[in-house]
């Protein structure tokens, strides 16, 4: 098991390296003189030169990249220059993390709770009107990105009917109900797309699994339909569904950007937008690194769960 993890992590190293390169090169994209941009419009020529030296911009590209890489490896991810000057970029990210983490988790939980019964029902009643309605629903859901569902949900449920608070966030420490009341609408807004993708995948793989010989055996054993589907079929249908679930993380991170702004939640997405507007490049760079590593980490975890679902995939 440890060997498996080590092997996978090793495989990710080139990618991680490239990610640092991408994040580094962002700064190269800045048109004009980055030192001037960072120092601000009111900076004097001396201040600009100071900034240049401070950011190491007076050295050539390779040296700068290696310095950057060295910094990362030693755990230093740069300092915020405009949002909260002086504080470490990673600190800001970690401050914002609980919000986004809550949002992501609740969103995925909602997605799974809705999508699994939906997919199972559609698969078991394949071809009937139930299947067609559910499949139609997923098709429409696919087309509802968070930035459409967000405003619509806010308009209907928060502004018109005041069922939920429209903005803000309260941490879990304030109590579960309070925490959930602020999270529910934004998480729901993000989950539509995930419901669609997960639901479809479950339907597809369950249909395939139900045709397998071992399902016939399970029926021949006289097991109830619930048991046949719930125990025998689903475990085998799970793998592609888990893969899709893993892919949702990337999507949800993108979704949080819009949703956190709409619902005024101080999460990582909002941090991303704010730091872009404030020209706080170190924070932007740190965010790129962070989100990429989050995705890579999630993929690793998904790969590890495969071994649980399909014993054939376990090493040795």
């Amino acid at each position: 098991m440890i060997r498996f993890i080590a092997w996978r992590v090793g495989g990710m190293l080139p990618i991680a390296l490239l990610v640092t390169l991408v994040s580094f090169l962002l700064l190269e994209l800045v048109p004009g003189d980055p030192a001037r941009v960072v120092a601000g419009d009111l900076a004097t020529p001396e201040q600009i030169e100071e900034t240049r030296a401070k950011l190491g911009l007076d050295q050539n590209v390779v040296v700068r990249y290696l310095t950057y890489l060295g910094d990362i490896l030693s755990g230093s991810f740069g300092e915020s220059i405009s949002l909260q000057p002086g504080r470490g970029a990673m600190e800001l990210i970690l401050d914002a993390l609980p919000v986004t983490l809550s949002l992501t988790v609740v969103s995925l939980v909602i997605a799974v709770i809705v999508a699994v019964p939906l997919g199972v029902a559609a698969a078991l009643r394949r071809g009937t009107w139930v299947d067609q309605v559910l499949t139609g629903f997923t098709s429409v859901s696919m087309a509802l990105p968070p930035f459409v569902t967000g405003p619509l949900l806010v308009t209907v449920l928060a502004v018109a009917y005041s069922l939920f608070p429209a903005v803000g966030y309260q941490p879990l420490s304030e109590g579960f109900a309070v925490w959930m009341s602020y999270l529910f609408l934004p998480a729901l807004a993000i989950s539509f797309n995930s419901i669609a993708e997960i639901g479809r995948q479950i339907r597809g793989s369950l249909i395939d699994v139900m045709d397998q010989s071992y399902i016939r055996t399970a029926n021949a054993k006289g097991l109830s339909a619930t048991r046949v589907v719930g125990k025998h079929a689903l475990k085998n249908a799970a793998i592609p569904a888990v893969t899709v679930l893993g892919l949702q993380v990337t999507r949800v991170i993108g979704g949080t950007v819009v949703v956190e702004i709409i619902f005024a939640m101080p999460g990582i997405g909002a941090l991303a937008v704010n730091s872009v507007f404030a020209g706080d490049f170190p924070v932007v760079q740190a965010l790129v690194l962070f989100s990429a590593f989050a995705v890579l980490g999630t993929n690793l975890i998904v790969d590890l769960t495969y071994g649980y679902f399909d014993p054939r995939l376990r090493k040795g």
Binding site: L18, V19, T250, R251, I253, V288, S291, A292, V295, L296
Partner: peptide, 9 residues
Amino acid sequence: TLLSLPPLI
């Protein structure tokens, strides 16, 4: 690598 970067970010 590109796949590990959330598009919007």
